[in-house]
Design a protein around this nucleic acid. Structure first.
Lengths: 622, 622
DNA sequence: ACTAGTATTCTAGAACG
DNA sequence: CGTTCTAGAATACTAGT
């Protein structure tokens, strides 16, 4: 043994080719776990036994890990697999440095021999770009970045000379895999060296093998789902937060506008008729902008005749009643738009934390708050709000500061665009022809108006004059400040209704926005999904147990490493033995995102979900 | 048969790729022996019988015979074999013109399938030139230059019909050898030629039962998950939409408010203390905060003195004051939170397009773009945006109207929040000096004013005009209208300005609100999850199959009511008759959608997703 | 040298579309 | 029948003793 061990990393010794770029990575490669990895080509297993790791594996590991060759072969982000972006170049440039050949296919054969599987890549389905973008990815449950010690677990499929050329077991497993999802990893262990699943009949073997690999597949899928859900959860939270903010902001705006209007009213006298128009326009959402807000209008927008606004203004002038109607009408329209929307979002809005009650954390009491929901959802998810895990309830304020959860709107957010968004608007205004350009039915000289206004704006005195005139001209009756005076109109949202001190109803009208129920639904859905996933964990466990029992009862020995399927990437073993069902215990999913997607161990998984990140394997879901 | 015969020579019909160089050789190919070679794809054997020649052979023959491609593939001197001097180029340049792929290995597989053999090349034995000069040569006794008629003699090695179709009981039994391998369990109980572990013990039965019930549980859970995900998806969409709407609305408000403020400023002159107060008050109330970046502001904001207007407002509306201030501080925090936030999940795998070589397509290399993500995620879900399946990027419009989706560039990382601090909003607008700010008092003729106002109040249109003009004046200098503004001729009213698809990509840039990338990620995540679920369906099916096989091979009777052949995942129900414990009782499908709680049909599911591709498994499908 | 595990090459099996 | 991924099989190589 002293002599012969191939240099682990580096061009094969036989190849005289000097390796310009690639240097043996003796230094670089380290066992992260501090496990005994004596030296290249050797590894020490749990029992302290020295195990020879086939040269191929070491070479492969070296190649993949060597960052200088990342152009040709590199680890996946998760570290669970590796990529070969260009097999041709890889074959021609890198292979010969490590092997005696330069055939990619030979390389692949070896990979398969060692239980690696290709991960199918679906070529981005859409455009078939000129460049088919080949990308080979291979995965093996025991081949992970930084886990060199796992290499000893990667076994080569031997052609058991003495063994029956059973095209079964392995084949079966493989076959099964084919059908499974993209990431299924055949258990490298099952068909491992010594203790095969040698059954009394090949058939049994096949079956068991298939079963276990199926289970592995299930686990994998499950893990994947959990990861996805997590991601979903996270983004859901974001959405949530945004919605809340948005709503808040919206409300503020609403209030502001109302405020302004009120102010103006007071300023000009309550009954300024002309003001009505302005007010309306303002309320509409921008003097310059069509109130029609985007959503429903678009189709019509083009042909939108100024009627809408004009008329409104005009109407307002005519009758008071209308005005009211007007306003509410407007609102209605708006909301109706919303309703038109695929349903939901009626208004269950968040009660704005207007009330002082903030005392308790519950921002919005009566109704199920997102937080509540969430927390319930995460129940067993032990410690939820962890450092990296965003608190389920996107409290607006991350800080511990006990603030009213609904942090106020930050208007900062809106800034960036103005330029863009105003663009069309601005143009308008700049366009001299705007007003005049249109066939003006009324006789108002645009130029005149311009001048007038110009003056107006230039001189305080003029302004005063203007105001006075305006005042005189207009004789309206008192106008109530629309704002809070209004009565509670609707409450589609029972939730909101019951809850908080009444929020300005008008506001409610205006903000058909984020509706709680929908969000809650989301969260509920999420929760449920999580539970499901957890339950599935249980299922799998049970299944595993069943199978184990079956195997035992059949008098078969548990194949070596049978249980393995990734069972112990980090040493933990699956305790399949006991007949007990830890069923109830599971079900926590939790908050970590460190789930690796390769060899997936249910127990481990559950643990992780539980909270403690047992995962040493750096394969976190990225 | 009439339909299907592929053109003999020339690119495969399926390949739409025009073949620049290679022209069908219909004319060139002639049977030298004058034998009847009716036409492409057909050949007549000695007995005058018409024989179909597999497309592969014809294509191969064409390729080899075409002298224009001799660079890539050509006949040997003797005409008994052919060479491929450079399989890389051959694969990349020629294969795709004839086949649906460009993998040399697939080509080789076909060759082997048709009985071609590679002729080993001894590489001139001596110098191992830098360039190993690969040279692949294949031979087939019936594949000779000019002897197209011989093609019919080249037979494809078929899967022996009568042979091992299934590794099932029968096959397995047959395969079982008496003197099995090393690990044969000889210790009684088991093994008969029937090869079954017939457990009279009943234990087996139990196990099987447990297995099946477990599987049932799995299925149930799975179905449940799918349902949940669907629900999630739906609500996610809603959220999305709302967020967008909200955003727009918000923006409009913002503009409105700014406009008002500006107006007032001008109206009262910039100096007006009262105005300042108002402004501040307004701002605080939720009007855009001073664009100055929030940060610097907040401290100051506190010490604002409330003056004139402020007070006035206060009168009008009592309550809120304190609160506002309070909150304003918070806002800031909020935004920072966002940034701090663990960001949306990083996306799962997907190869990062690391290599540089990817010369062409890779849009944005290093980082995973949403698009990429999406596309990869959607792998097999070829046609994504379908009727019920919202396009990954939900358009703002609720309607089906095709608007410009946000296909836009990578806003990914562009956290809207971050931008917030920049770009002072409404800076110009608020800037008193902006407009015609110079102190150039006009002379305002009272009469004129009177008239003007009169008109104003008389006509809605006039009012509108007034507003426009006002805006115009206020606005001061021109704001560049970006893109469409220029083209938009009409604009009778500023309102209409928006005209276009309400959603302007530009919005995306600043949208403080819904974070697009996050959403995209959401969707990607969702999609992936769906896939997982689907995969799991497959897994379960396979598992079921395995178990079925096991059961059969064991010669056990199917446990009570155990019928499930996983094979028919679709229609069949998994009626696990036994009173199995559905473990955690979780599994109720939340009365969701159309998913039956029984077996989950992957295909169906996928269809529902809007996808036609029924592929149950993702294995390589271009 | 003999043996056993490994490497490389060529061909075949299976699954799936 | 075609394409893909994986396995079988033959042969060659290498190390250990």
């Amino acid at each position: 043994m002293s002599t012969g061990i191939n240099a682990v990393a580096g061009p094969s010794s036989t190849t005289s080719t000097p390796s310009p770029k690639i240097e043996p990575m003796s230094p670089p490669i380290m066992d992260e776990h501090g496990q005994a990895v004596s030296k290249q080509g050797l590894s020490v297993d749990e029992n302290g036994e020295v195990i020879k790791v086939p040269a191929f594996l070491n070479k492969l590991f070296s190649m993949v890990s060597d960052t200088s060759t990342d152009e040709l072969i590199y680890w996946s982000d998760s570290g669970d697999s590796f990529f070969v972006p260009n097999h041709e170049r890889f074959g021609k440039e890198l292979l010969p440095k490590f092997f005696k050949h330069s055939n990619f296919s030979s390389f692949v054969r070896q990979l398969n021999m060692y239980g690696f599987h290709k991960v199918p890549h679906l070529q981005s389905g859409v455009l078939k770009n000129e460049n088919p973008q080949e990308l080979w990815e291979f995965v093996n449950p025991f081949f992970k970045r930084g886990q060199q010690h796992l290499l000893s677990r990667v076994t080569r499929k031997n052609n058991r000379p003495g063994n029956i050329p059973m095209p079964t077991a392995a084949g079966a497993a493989a076959r099964v895999r084919a059908g499974a999802g993209p990431f299924l990893i055949t258990d490298g262990t099952v068909e491992g060296e010594s203790g095969m699943l040698v059954g009394p009949s090949g058939q049994q073997m096949l079956d068991i093998s298939a079963l276990s690999s199926n289970i592995a597949a299930l686990r994998q899928t499950q893990a994947s789902i959990v990861g996805d859900l997590k991601a979903l959860k996270t983004s859901q939270e974001h959405l949530w937060r945004q919605a809340l903010e948005s709503q808040e902001r919206h409300q503020k705006h609403q209030e502001t506008i109302d405020l302004i209007v009120t102010f103006l009213e007071r300023l000009f006298g309550t009954e300024g008729e002309g003001l009505k128009g302005l007010k309306e326009a303002l309320r509409r959402g921008g003097i310059g902008r069509p109130r029609e807000d985007s959503t429903s209008e678009e189709g019509v927008s083009k042909k939108r005749k100024r009627l809408g606004v004009d008329r409104m203004i005009g109407d307002g002038r005519d009758e008071d009643e209308d005005r009211r109607i007007d306003e509410s009408g407007r609102i209605v329209e708006l909301s109706s738009d919303q309703q038109t929307d695929p349903g939901q979002f009626s208004v269950p809005r968040i009660a704005r934390s207007r009330s002082s009650r903030q005392s308790s954390n519950q921002p919005m009491s009566t109704s199920v708050t997102p937080q509540e929901l969430w927390s319930s959802a995460s129940q067993r998810f032990t410690t939820l709000p962890t450092d990296d895990e965003p608190s389920p309830v996107p409290s607006t304020s991350t800080e511990g500061k006990p603030k009213p959860t609904y942090a106020p709107p930050n208007f900062d957010n809106l800034q960036p665009h103005e330029l863009n968004s105003l663009a069309p608007y601005g143009q308008h205004m700049l366009n001299p022809n705007n007003g005049a350009g249109t066939p003006a039915p009324y006789n108002l000289d645009p130029a005149l108006l311009q001048t007038t206004i110009g003056s107006l704006l230039q001189s305080p005195a003029a302004a005063q004059m203007f105001l006075n005139t305006l005042n005189n001209s207009v004789q309206g009756q008192a106008l109530q400040t629309p704002t809070k005076a209004a009565t509670q109109p609707n409450n589609y949202s029972p939730i909101a209704a019951q809850g908080e001190p009444s929020v300005d109803p008008t506001l409610a009208l205006f903000s058909p926005l984020p509706n709680h129920s929908a969000m809650m639904n989301d969260n509920a859905a999420l929760l449920k999904t999580y539970e499901d996933a957890a339950a599935m964990g249980t299922d799998v466990d049970k299944l595993q147990e069943s199978i184990d029992e079956l195997v035992r009862s059949m008098g078969l020995e548990l194949p070596n490493g049978y249980e393995g399927t990734g069972a112990s990437a980090d040493g933990t073993t699956m305790s399949v033995g006991n007949g007990s069902d830890h069923a109830s215990g599971h079900g926590q999913l939790g908050g970590e995102d460190t789930l690796g997607d390769a060899g997936f161990d249910v127990d481990e998984f559950l643990e992780q979900l539980g909270k403690t990140d047992g995962g040493t394997d750096g394969s976190g879901v990225p």
